[in-house]
Each structure stands twice: as C-alpha cells, then as structure tokens.
Amino acid sequence: MSTILQRIQGDRTLWAIAIILALFSLMPVYSASSNIAFLYGSGNTLGMLGKHSIHLVLGLILMYAAHNISYKHYGPLSIILLPIAVVLLIYTLLQGHSVANASRWIQIPFLGWTFQTSAFASIVLMIYIARYLSKVDPEKLKSFKKTLVPLLGPIFLVCGFILPANFSTAALIFTICMVVLFIGGYPLKNLLIIIGSGVAGLLLFILLTLAFPNMSNRVETWKARVANFSEGNAEENYQVTKAKMAIAEGMVVGKGPGKSIQKNFLPQSNSDFIYAVIVEEFGMIGGVIILMFYVMFLVRVLIISQKAESKFGMLLAAGTGFAILVQAFVNLGVAVNLLPVTGQTLPLISAGGSSIWMTCLAIGIILSVSRGQITEETLEAEQKETPENIPAHA
C-alpha cells in the first residue's frame, strides 16, 4: 500500500475525491442501467456494470498517466492536437454516429464503443488557450486584431463545429473560454466584442436553419426544451417531471440502493438524469453529500490554481477544473429543474466512456499542476537533505 501511495503524487485530496466518486458511481449506474438494458432487449445489467467498470479503470489509468507527465509538456502538445481535434469534429458532424438526430459520436474501431469528440476538443482547447495567454506578450494581448486568428480563431472553430449537434456543450465551452480569457488578463472590452460576435454567430445559425430546415433540426429541439422549461409544461417535459418525482420520493434518507422506481421511466437514467436516481435511492442526504464533493473539488482546484508555479499552470488548472465543475452543476441544475434539459452528464458518476475518460484526463492534468507546486512539506524535506544536516559518515 505504501508503494502505491508513493507513486501517487500531486494533491491527495483531489485524488481521494475522484476515486470516491468513481467507486460510488458503481451503485447508481448498476441500478439505473436496468431501464436501459431492458429497453434494448438484453436485460443484462451486469454486462452494463462491467462495461462501466472497464470505463472507470481505463479512466483512472489515464488519470495516473496524465498526472505523471509534467504539465509543461501539455502546452506544446496542444498545438499538435488542436488541428486533429478540429478534423475529428468535422468528421463527427458529417459522418458521426447519430443519436436522437444529433451527430456527436464517432465509432471506436474493433471495440464497438462510441467516443464524443467534443469532450476531447474542449480539453485540448483549454490547454491551448492557457498556453497562448501565458506565452504571448502582454502588449500584444491587448490588441484584438493581433489575437483574432491565433487565439479567437480556435475558439470559434471548435464551438462552431460542435454547435449544430450540441448547443449546450458549445455554449459551456464558449463560457469557460471567456472565463479563462478573463482570468488570463484579456481586456474586458475585447471580451465583450467576442461575446457579441458569439451571440451574432448563434443568431445567424438559427436564421440559416429556419431558412433551410434540412440543414439541422436541432433548433426546433432547443426551442421546445426552452419553451417547456419556461412554461412548466409537465405533459411535454416528461424527463424533468419524472426526475422531480424521483427526487420527491427520495425524501430525507431515500428508498435504499437499487430501489428506485422512477429509473424505469426516466430516459437516460444512468447518465443525464442519474442524480435524480441517486436522490431517490439515497435521499436528500445522499444528494447533498454528492453536491459537497463537487464543492470540495472546486476548493481544491482554486487552491491548486492559486499555488501554481507559473501562469500557464494556473490557467491550465482553472480552465480544465472549471469545465468539469460547470458540467456537473449544469447536470444537477437540470435534474432539479433549475435549467432546461441539456444532455450533460455528471462527471465521474454518469455512465459513458468518453465522459469518464476525458474527465479523468482533465483531473490528471490538474494533478500534474499540483505536482509542480513547492509546498511546505517539500521545503522541509529539502532542508533536511542540505549538506549541514547530513552526518559526516554519510
């Protein structure tokens, strides 16, 4: 055990949060998968649990590998990976695997699994932005024209290719990018121009889809979800209604593991609406505990960002960490009907290979940043090893 702990470096609290959430996910995923298993005719919930377990093991291996790489290497790597991510997004949009008329996945050869390219592109984009903001001359950063192509171009490319099939993900990535730009010292005036351009681009896309309906049918889906949310139409907003029933039936202590009833009626009960299943089975206490774990995750990300030894490390930890947290709170907000249905998974808990892998990769990168911090413990260790403290016979 001590050997394993010696190999695990970085922020131990963040490690503990990630592992606890991953292990806990086995119970609600197994319970909520019964609906999905019978829906597709297999009825094999153990098979779905095994698949989720494999995803978790691969994710934790990816996290460990990512945390062993110096975070300084991720900056140059993002320059190579960004064009690859854009190509994958284009391929996904044109030839990807579609679910509910939305092309968001590509098929992984030989395994039969699907991979959501937007998750990979978002991490690469965050790394690229953090690197650019830390490397560029502050005077150049003040110029909108000089940063238009190298900094803003990738943001609009990535978000633009995700938008037609997944508005919520594109909006979340765009929002996190704006936060990272603000933290990185990008002028507020230029930020407002970017936000205005983004809104204008969205309106243009909506107008084009209304003029050419064959281009995309996602706008009608967006309109329906926002309308149902604002009007509180329970008949049309079936998913949220069942989620609220699950939360209400959970009461304080819940029905117990595996005893959820609404999981049999909730679409995507093991992914998008897994928080409702958790509250029904573990009650308000379980729901609050899960929420507190994400709050602790936020605290650790802020601490790691604050203690980072470089501007790149600070922006890298903040960008990748905030991306995970925003996704988590959006998922929770949808489950309790604070936000319209978006289709965002709950990080480290929901079923889904690409979500688990990319979340673990992001956490591994944050842990890599925490490895580079000079803590009081390392300073004390270094002081003990100074020449004056080494015995003469050593």
Rank of each mutant, 00 (worst) to 15 (best):
K255D: 14
V240T: 15
G313D: 10
P340Q: 10
G287Q: 12
I278Y: 03
L332Y: 01
A246N: 07
E309F: 02
F329G: 13
P257M: 06
L266N: 06
A318I: 00
E281A: 09
A318G: 03
V253M: 13
I261R: 10
S260V: 01
S269M: 10
G254C: 04
G333C: 12
G258K: 06
A328S: 09
P267R: 04
V277C: 02
V288L: 10
F282A: 03
I324G: 03
L315S: 05
K242R: 15
Y294M: 03
T320V: 12
I289D: 09
K307G: 04
P340C: 14
E249Q: 10
E281L: 12
I303A: 01
G343D: 15
V330H: 07
I290H: 00
A243C: 05
I274N: 05
G313I: 06
M284V: 12
S305N: 03
A328T: 14
I274G: 08
K311I: 04
K311T: 15
S271Y: 07
L298N: 04
E281P: 03
Q239I: 14
I303E: 05
N337C: 10
N264I: 09
T345Q: 07
F312T: 06
E309L: 11
G258D: 09
L291H: 00
K242Y: 08
Y238P: 13
S269L: 13
L346M: 13
Y238N: 08
V334L: 02
G287D: 14
G286M: 12
K259L: 11
T320H: 02
Y275D: 11
V279R: 11
L298M: 13
V301E: 01
P267H: 05
K255C: 08
V299D: 07
L332V: 00
M292R: 03
N337H: 15
V301C: 03
K307L: 10
F282L: 02
L346Y: 14
A248I: 06
M314V: 01
L315Y: 13
A246L: 02
N331Y: 14
Y294A: 02
M296K: 05
F265Y: 15
L332N: 00
N270D: 15
I289Y: 00
